[in-house]
Structures are given as structure tokens and as C-alpha cells.
Design a protein around this nucleic acid. Structure first.
Lengths: 158, 158
DNA sequence: ATCCTTTAATTAGCTATGCTACACAAGTGT
DNA sequence: ACACTTGTGTAGCATAGCTAATTAAAGGAT
């Protein structure tokens, strides 16, 4: 059917993959959302928390940038995490405007104790896959992450 | 601990992949959301529309099931699509309780004209990848989709 | 035929995530 | 000192997801 020829894929192949990937991502997250929110941690909160837990304390702005959301969104996510006792906010000693977000022991513990229930549920499902397929998913995640960082920098005019 | 022995991967590997995948999915969709919403179609709406465009008319319930959301959520999504002139709602001739959702020519056209801007943007990024990586992503999407359907049926007690 | 239960869809109301616009405090440069 | 920029926060909007409760119709039992 298609003939990729050299190393760059054709437009049709690319678009089909994009469509599949888009759909797969939507369904994956929807499923996880429904699976378990009993931990009290939603996806975005968990994701933000993991940044400060594994990357150390940082400002709201840095966090927003890392998570690719606007500052007001991150302000709210951090507020929720703080209300849950998972992070603290403290003034940045080098810049009085900025707020440093730091994970509390409880926050660290929550992530260490299973890296969040959502990923845990997913893990349980992934465990049923043969090793080769799991490896494929792992590679895919890495590729997407790399792509994410590239497009993040390449952004300019609207 | 556990010893799956044969082809099943270890717990640690599975969990790491789950975490990466979770994160990758969140970031992928966030990025796409920011890239382009000028089409007026959000992810869930686009996803629902594509079901009726490519799968033919079906009821709200069937649509909700296909998209793995609750009926009220699908009612709202369909209402938005209808307001945009992309689908119509008509009584199901075989069941007066049910509503058949059918894509309008405009809805079909929108999807055919690039399968939505979101996937299109993604496609543009994917086009920069070598063929092997694209193939990996394609395989991953297929695996996730399959997993999605399995867990949909296999759901039971918490 | 009537009553009861189940099913399909909707409405109402909640939480959460994302955004922009605006306000304000604190750095920065002239 | 003054203006400009930057980091957060507040207010308000739209969307998406949910559950609970309502309404209408289908289906089964008597």
C-alpha cells in the first residue's frame, strides 16, 4: 500500500498515526480518570507534584513552564496541593516576588508509595502485556516526551 | 516477591512505563489543546464526531459507550456539535426513547478536511521523526487502544 | 390491559482544568 | 525617581467529567 521509501514517512501515514495517537491519549486519560481518584490526586496535580518531588523546589512560574500551563492554572494546582498538605509555599530568598514550592514529606511519600494511584492502575493493566509490547509503549512515551520539549521551544507567534 | 518467569515484565519496569506514559499523554493533549482550537472543536468533541462520521449514525448511549464517558457527558458533547451544525439528532425509529446522532455534510467535511486541526498539528510534528520512531508510535497507539477496550469490559469491583 | 421494572436521555448541580484580563508587588534599567 | 518588566494572584469564563434525580418509553408479569 504505502511506500515510505527513504526514512521520512508519507503524509498519509503520519496523519493516520497522529489521529490514532490523539485518540489513544484521550481514551487513556479518560479511563484513568474514571479508574481511581480516591487518592484525591487528579492527573494535573499528580503531574505537578512529581515535578517538585523529583526535581526539587521551584517557583510557580518554573512549574507552569515545566507543565506547559499558564501561571494562573499552576497557582490553583499548587493551592490544591498545599491544601492537601503535599507541598508548602515559601518566599524565594532571591526574589521576593516569587514563591518556592516544596514537596512535604507527605507529598514525597505519596509519590514513592506507588507514584500515584492512577499510574498504578495503568501499571496493573500494562502488566498483562507481553514484554515486547511494553517496550514499544516505553519507547513511544520517550519519543513523545522528546517531541513535547522540541515543540515547547519552537513556539513563537500565534 | 513475584516471579512471572516467562514473558511478563517486572513490576518496576511496568510502573516506570506507566508513569512515563501517563505523563506523556497529559503533556501531549495539553500541547495540542494550546496549539490550535481555532477550528472550534475541542478534543472530546472531535473524538465524538469522528465516531459518527466514520462509524455511521448511532444513539447517545452507544456514543457514550464508545467514548467511555457517561450519558450526560455525551448529551452535552452532542448538543455542542449540534449547535455547531456538525451533527443532527433524530428519533430512533426502532426505539422512541433513543436519539440517533447523525453527522451532517459539514461535520463530514470538517473531518475530511484534515481530520481536525489538532491531529493535523500533531501530524506536522510527527513528520519530523524518522520512520522507525513513527512506526513505534503507531504500534503504541494500537496497543493502547486494545488495552482500552479490554479494561472497558473487564471493569468490576474496586 | 394494567402495573412494575428497566432502559435512554435529559436536567441540575458539583468539581476540576484550562484560559484571558486585570491588579499588584517587586525587580531592573535609565 | 520613574517607567518597564516580571512573578503571582484574583476574577470570571468555557469545557469536561461525574452523580443524582427526572421523564418517557419499552418490556414483562399478572
Amino acid at each position: 500500500m504505502d511506500d515510505p521509501g527513504t526514512s521520512l514517512p508519507t503524509d498519509a501515514v503520519v496523519r493516520r498515526t497522529a489521529d490514532r495517537l490523539h485518540s489513544a491519549a484521550i481514551h487513556l486519560l479518560r479511563r484513568l480518570r474514571r479508574e481511581d481518584d480516591a487518592s484525591g490526586l487528579t492527573g494535573p496535580r499528580l503531574s505537578a507534584l512529581s515535578v517538585v518531588v523529583f526535581g526539587g523546589p521551584r517557583t510557580i512560574g518554573a512549574l507552569a513552564s515545566a507543565e506547559q500551563v499558564r501561571p494562573p492554572t499552576m497557582t490553583r494546582l499548587v493551592a490544591a496541593l498545599e491544601a492537601g498538605g503535599l507541598v508548602t509555599r515559601e518566599p524565594d530568598p532571591t526574589d521576593a516576588r516569587a514563591t518556592l514550592v516544596r514537596a512535604t514529606p507527605a507529598g514525597v511519600r505519596l509519590l514513592e508509595e506507588g507514584r500515584g494511584r492512577r499510574a498504578d492502575r495503568l501499571a496493573r493493566q500494562l502488566a498483562t502485556l507481553p514484554q515486547a509490547e511494553l517496550a514499544t509503549l516505553d519507547k513511544a512515551a520517550e519519543i513523545l516526551d522528546r517531541l513535547s520539549r522540541i515543540s515547547q521551544d519552537g513556539r513563537q507567534s500565534g
